[in-house]
């Protein structure tokens, strides 16, 4: 059994946010150069990998160097059957959720229709919250049209997975996720303000950390997206902390026992991959 530790109260009480430091020209050039190098490294991995056996994960670790990781991975392998590697480009959380939803959309038509309804409600909400006019609703329209195509059967499964691996299309969908994450947090600013350090407002936090592409999602962004989409996710944590029974997982939001997650992610420090439970 995996130890249940799913409530939000167990989260650290604050999220640390680095304020934007002004950079001089030389620093910007250096940063650009480093970013390009990192990007070239990242591009060796597909945006979303093929569905592979979960046990592949075990081969990443050996007893000598990573015993805790290996034992956790071994225990998780009893519960999880498959996984997809997600590219570590700062969008991995958003992309992993997107890939997880693709599976649902392809298999569960009524749920797909619900998602179309959820997505269609966002453009008005974004306008109401004062997001820049047409450029934001453009991302919403693209997302809705994409889903409508899926519903109409205009794209077969193979084509869909190709789209998920094509930078331009996939990142358009990711950007929609970032916008609605930001919108959800801004809309519920009073509830989330206490989680933000450094005197930033929720709006400033979103502009620095959520809306820009290639920025990692922290716990606040995770909570925002999950609720903006009205989905349920489980995150299996795998790090070096000594936790019994292979670590723990968080369920977001807290959902009732018996009501499983729609998507399960594997979290290793700084990175998310998509994982699939064994069928019972």
């Amino acid at each position: 059994m995996v130890q249940e530790k799913s409530s939000d109260e167990n989260q650290p009480a604050s999220v640390s946010v680095a304020g934007p430091a002004p950079l001089n020209e030389e620093e910007i050039q250096l940063q650009d150069q480093q970013l390009r190098q990192i990007e070239n490294e990242q591009k060796k991995v597909p945006l979303v990998g093929e569905k592979i056996p979960f046990t592949t994960l075990l081969s990443e670790y050996d007893v000598a160097n990573a015993e805790t990781f290996l034992s956790k991975a071994t225990e998780l392998a009893e519960v999880y059957e498959h996984m997809r590697y997600i590219r570590g480009d700062g969008n991995c959380f958003y992309r992993a959720v997107l890939a997880g939803l693709f599976d649902i959309w392809l298999q569960d038509r009524p749920r797909l229709q619900q998602y179309i309804g959820i997505a269609k409600a966002w453009p008005e909400e974004l306008k109401r919250l004062g997001f820049p006019d047409w450029t934001c609703t453009d991302f919403c329209e693209f997302f809705v049209d994409f889903l409508v195509d899926v519903e109409a059967g205009a794209k077969d499964e193979e084509t869909l997975w190709e789209h998920l691996n094509a930078d331009s299309c996939a990142n358009y969908l990711v950007m929609f996720f970032r916008l609605i994450t930001s919108a959800f947090l801004k809309k519920n600013a009073d509830a989330y303000a206490p989680f933000i350090d450094d005197g930033l407002t929720v709006a400033q936090y979103c502009e620095n950390e959520v809306e820009p592409m290639w920025k990692d999602a922290d716990h606040l962004a995770v909570a925002g997206l999950v609720q903006a989409l009205d989905t349920r996710i489980r995150i299996e944590y795998m790090d070096r902390t000594v936790a019994p029974n292979g670590g723990w997982h968080y369920d977001i939001p807290n959902f009732a026992e018996g009501q499983g997650p729609e998507i399960t992610l594997l979290y290793r420090p700084g990175h998310y991959d998509l994982i699939y439970k064994k069928q019972e």
């Binding site: 002004p22 950079l23 001089n24 820049p132 950007m175 916008l179 809306e211």
Partner: peptide, 29 residues
């Protein structure tokens, strides 16, 4: 560069450059 947002459009780019003309930033010459 580092503060680009996908919500900017061409109009936003051009008006930002227009503003930059009379509001230079001498700290990053």
């Amino acid at each position: 560069q580092n503060r680009w947002s996908p919500t900017y459009d061409v109009a936003a780019i051009l008006t930002s450059i227009q503003s930059l003309l009379d509001e230079p930033n001498p700290n990053s010459p």
